[in-house]
Design a protein around this nucleic acid. Structure first.
Lengths: 335, 335
DNA sequence: GTGAAAGCGCTAACAG
DNA sequence: CTGTTAGCGCTTTCAC
C-alpha cells in the first residue's frame, strides 16, 4: 500500500541503507550512478520518507511546535506567521496548537506526550500560571515567549510590559490627558502581564505628579473586544471626565474605541487611547490606533536563535531576554 | 533517560503487554489489582506514552491537521478555533500549519510526508489551485474546506460564494446604492473564490436591472487591508459617484472602510459597504460592518463529521456540501 | 488474565 | 562505496 524504502531498494537493486543514504544526501556515501538509479526509483514509485519512523529512530523531524492560548486572537496569528517565516530560514517548519480553550485542552497540549512530538516547543505563556509551566519536565527544548514571572530554568524571551505601559501612559499624559483609565488592568501583586502593565500605568502617573484614580483600573472578565466595549461604554456614562485610556492590548483597544463611540464621545478629541501590541489592523482603524510596539521581529529572531542553539545541543545556561518597547503614535492620541 | 513502558513493566513486575493494556484501558484484559499496581508505577515514574511510537505502530494519534494559507489572517484563526472546539468533542486535537507564505512552504505542508503525520487533514484551499490539490495522493483522509472548483474525489465543505455575493450586492442596491464597486474582485472565468463572488456581484445587478460598471471591478494584488485601503482611496478620488462597495472579504472591507475615510467620505451616508465572512471584529468596527455570514458553525460541524466518518473507515462516496449564506446587516449599510 | 514474539519504517554503527 | 545487524517504543497476534 504505502511505499517504503524497502520498495525503493528492491526496485533499484540496492540495499535499504543505500536508499537511506541517498534520501538524506549523505556526502560521498554513495556513487553517482547508484544515486541516480535510486532517485529514479524514488521518482517512479512516488516514495516519500515516513517522518514518524524517522522521528522514532532519531528524534528529529524539523518541526517546531508553537503552543498559544487561542487560535482566534490576531496577536497569536501574527506571532505564528512571523515565527514560521523565521524558522523557515533554517529549514524548520512550524505547527501551532492551542492550549487555552479548555482545561483538558491545556493539559493535552502541554503534556509531555505532545511536546515530545516536536524538535522544540515555543510556549506562549500569556494566561498560563507559573505552576502549570513549572510542572513541565521534558527533554525537548522549550522556549517561553512573551510573558514574565516564569521559572528561570527555561529560556525566555519576554516583553517589557511595565516599561511599555509606562511609555503608553506617559504619552497620554504628555498629550494632555489627566483622568486616566487602564482597561483590562488589575490582578494586583501577581506576576501576570496584566499586573505588570497596571504597574507601568500607575508609575507613569506618579512620575508625572498625578495620583492614579482609585477607580481607574477597569478589570475585564476576559481581554476581549466585546467585554472591553461594554465595560467602557458603561464606565463613561458614570464618569464622563475620563480623557485618556490605556488598553492593555490592542484587541482590548479595539473594544475601547467602539465603547467610546457608543458613549457618544470622540477619539481623540474627548478621549485619547493607547493600546499595546501593534497589531497590523491598528494602523487601519479610524482613527489609527496609537500603540506600543514590542519589537516583534527582534523577539522572533531571538526565539528562533535560541531554538537553534538548543536543538544543536548547546549546553549554555537559560537565557532571559527582554524585548524593547517603542511607541507608535497614530490618530487615537492628539498631535 | 525517558521512561518507557518497559520501565513501568519492570517497576510493577508485569509484562510490557499488561502495561499497554492498562494504558489503553482495554476492557477486561487485566485484573483490578494488577491494574492498580501498574497505574501506581505509571504515576510514580511519570510515564507518558510515546505518540510517535504509537503512530508508527498503528497509524493513529488523535491529531488532525489543518492547513491554512496564512496564520495571520483572522479568518483562519477563527476557523481554527472553531474546529479545535468541535474536534475536541470526539477527543481529537487540532494542529495548524501554514502553506501559503512561500512556494517551498506550500510543498512542504502539502507533502505526503507531512500529511501522513496526521489522522486526517483539513485543507483550507483558498488560494490553492486545482492542480496542486489534485496532485495529493495519500491514504490519510483529506477534507477540503471553504472553496469551490476542486477535484471531486475529495470530501468538500464549500461556501456558497456566488449566492453570498449576490445577497450582499442585492442588499446594497435595496438600500439605494446605484454605482457599485467590487473590491478584490476579478479573476474572470477561473474557479476561484474571487471569480465566484464577482459573478454574484454582476448577477445581482443584472437581476435588479442595473448594468455593472465596466470599471466596477477593482482588482487587488493581495486581499489585504493595506492594498484595499490604497486602492479605494485612489479610486474614489477618480470616480466619486461610487456609493456602494462590496468587499470580497471582511479583511478587505476593513481596508475599504479606511480608504473611504481617507477620501473624506462618510459610511454609510456617502458610501455603503458590505463584506464577506462575518469576522468577529466586524461587529465592533465603527460603524459595524454589514457582512455575509457563511454559517461557520454548520461548516465546522460538517467537516468534523466527515473526518469522523473517514477515520472510522466508512467507504461512502465523496461528499460535497454547500454552506448556506446569510446577510448580517449592520451600520455600514443604511436602514 | 497475562506474556512472548514479531514488526511498523527508519537510521547508527559497523563490517565488508 | 555498499550491505548487515540491531533497535527506537509501541501494539497486534497468538500462546499459555
Amino acid at each position: 500500500m504505502t511505499i517504503t524504502m524497502r520498495d525503493v531498494a528492491r526496485a533499484s537493486g540496492v540495499s535499504l541503507m543505500t536508499v537511506s543514504n541517498v534520501i538524506n544526501g549523505r556526502p560521498g556515501a554513495v556513487g553517482t550512478e547508484t544515486r541516480l538509479r535510486v532517485l529514479e526509483a524514488v521518482e517512479r514509485l512516488g516514495y516519500e520518507v515516513n517522518l514518524t519512523a524517522r522521528r522514532l529512530r532519531n528524534g528529529l523531524t524539523g518541526t517546531v511546535g508553537l503552543i498559544v492560548p487561542r487560535f482566534d486572537h490576531p496577536y497569536f496569528g501574527e506571532l505564528a506567521a512571523r515565527l514560521a517565516t523565521e524558522l523557515a530560514k533554517t529549514g524548520r517548519h512550524l505547527s501551532v496548537e492551542q492550549s487555552g480553550a479548555s482545561a483538558e485542552g491545556e493539559l493535552a497540549a502541554l503534556s509531555h506526550a505532545r511536546i515530545a512530538t516536536y524538535d522544540a516547543v515555543l510556549l506562549s505563556v500569556v494566561g498560563l500560571h507559573y505552576d502549570d509551566v513549572d510542572k513541565l519536565q521534558t527533554s525537548v527544548p522549550i522556549v517561553l515567549l512573551g510573558e514574565q514571572g516564569m521559572p528561570r530554568r527555561f529560556d525566555h524571551v519576554q516583553l517589557d510590559n511595565e516599561a511599555g505601559a509606562h511609555l503608553a501612559t506617559g504619552h497620554l499624559i504628555e498629550r494632555g490627558a489627566r483622568h486616566l483609565l487602564i482597561v483590562g488592568g488589575g490582578d494586583e501583586g501577581r506576576q501576570s502581564m496584566t499586573a505588570a502593565r497596571t504597574r507601568g500605568w500607575e508609575r507613569a502617573q506618579s512620575d508625572a505628579g498625578l495620583t492614579p484614580r482609585p477607580d481607574g483600573v477597569l478589570e475585564l472578565a476576559e481581554l476581549e473586544v466585546a467585554c472591553a466595549r461594554i465595560a467602557v461604554r458603561e464606565r463613561l456614562a458614570q464618569t464622563p471626565e475620563i480623557d485618556g485610556i490605556f488598553a492593555v492590548t490592542d484587541q482590548v483597544a479595539f473594544g475601547v474605541m467602539a465603547g467610546v463611540h457608543d458613549a457618544g464621545l470622540r477619539v481623540p478629541e474627548d478621549v485619547q487611547i493607547v493600546g499595546f501590541d501593534n497589531l497590523a489592523l491598528g494602523e487601519h482603524m479610524t482613527p489609527g490606533l496609537t500603540t506600543i510596539d514590542p519589537s516583534h521581529d527582534w523577539m522572533v529572531q531571538r526565539a528562533a536563535a535560541l531554538i537553534d542553539q538548543r536543538i544543536a545541543g548547546q549546553d549554555v545556561p537559560p537565557q532571559h531576554l527582554i524585548s524593547p518597547s517603542m511607541l507608535v503614535a497614530r490618530g487615537t492620541t492628539r498631535e
